[in-house]
């Protein structure tokens, strides 16, 4: 039978296929365009001074200094937030799988995690702000850390839960058959099996935390100094980009581009690094 290429259904097929390929290319192209824009604008202004010094007098008028305060501030904020989120997420993810399984309470918890995941960071920021008002706290590193922890919590648990749920149930049974308690199954078997998943989840949440601006805007404040205590304000990279862009001076704006480049490099390094680390952590796991 000879194929008629110009038959209507074959034309539709070609059009559909072409549209899909085009869409795919647009998506891939956007990523390339974003990276290229940030690189092209940021690289010329990126100097060693930028990442090794705190802002000096007149920095926001284009004078000397760097954004070390924001780099360190962001690392403190995101690390603190990630640590607290991890301390809560890990038991929660293990509990969801080992103890709750498909029970109705488990469904409620998962639903609320999904809902929390959808709450935007500006709302977390506003909530953190009201919380701090109520407690009489000032904008501080601690405030920022707590809000980031809340923001990262659902991201982390969901990511872990997804990995845990792919674990074969027979593996759990194998441990139960030896007389393990559920706690032992959770801490000795599930934890090991999901180690790569934990690594990915933690780094994913860390990346979110370090890139988030709207929540720390309210709660961590901004400062030109490296925070010396949990109760002092802390600068952050996204806000450094934002504030420098807000000045009318081209030199300062150029530094904003460089700051954006630094932030992008950190975030992409985390994203790529998590793949590599997860592969390493998976040595003993059952595939």
């Amino acid at each position: 039978m000879k194929m008629n290429r110009f038959h209507r259904r074959h034309i539709t097929e070609s059009i559909a296929k072409g549209a899909m390929l085009l869409s795919f290319l647009i998506m891939a192209g956007s990523l390339g365009l974003i990276l290229w824009t940030v690189l092209y604008k940021g690289l010329p202004a990126l100097t060693w001074e930028m990442i090794s010094q705190t802002p000096k007098g007149g920095f926001y008028l284009g004078k000397e200094g760097g954004i070390l305060n924001a780099i360190i501030g962001s690392l403190y904020l995101a690390s603190g937030g990630t640590l607290i989120a991890l301390a809560l997420s890990l038991p929660m993810a293990l509990y969801l799988e080992t103890y709750l399984g498909k029970s109705s309470w488990g469904r409620w918890v998962r639903l609320s995690l999904d809902v929390l995941w959808g709450i935007p960071s500006i709302v977390y920021g506003a909530f953190g702000f009201t919380l701090m008002l109520a407690l009489g706290m000032r904008a501080s590193l601690l405030g920022g850390i707590i809000v980031l922890a809340l923001l990262e919590l659902p991201i982390m648990v969901r990511a872990m839960d997804e990995v845990i749920r792919r674990m074969p149930v027979d593996l759990e049974h194998a441990a139960l058959a030896l007389g393990s308690t559920k706690l032992e199954v959770a801490t000795r078997i599930v934890l090991r099996q999901m180690l790569p998943g934990i690594v990915t989840a933690v780094l994913l949440a860390f990346g979110r935390g370090i890139g988030d601006a709207a929540s720390v805007l309210f709660t961590a404040g901004y400062t030109d100094n490296i925070p010396g205590s949990l109760l002092r304000p802390a600068a952050s990279l996204p806000l450094a980009v934002f504030f420098q862009l807000g000045t009318p001076f081209p030199e300062v704006q150029a530094r904003a581009y460089a700051s954006a480049l630094i932030l992008t490099i950190i975030v992409l390094a985390i994203s790529l690094g998590s793949r590599w680390l997860a592969a390493k952590a998976g040595k003993f796991t059952l595939k």
Binding site: A174, A177, L178, G179, F284, T285
Partner: peptide
């Protein structure tokens, strides 16, 4: 513990 099980498929622990 006292009544051991050998399952249908082996599942080595990770």
């Amino acid at each position: 513990k006292r009544i051991g099980l050998l399952a249908q498929r082996p599942y080595p622990l990770p």
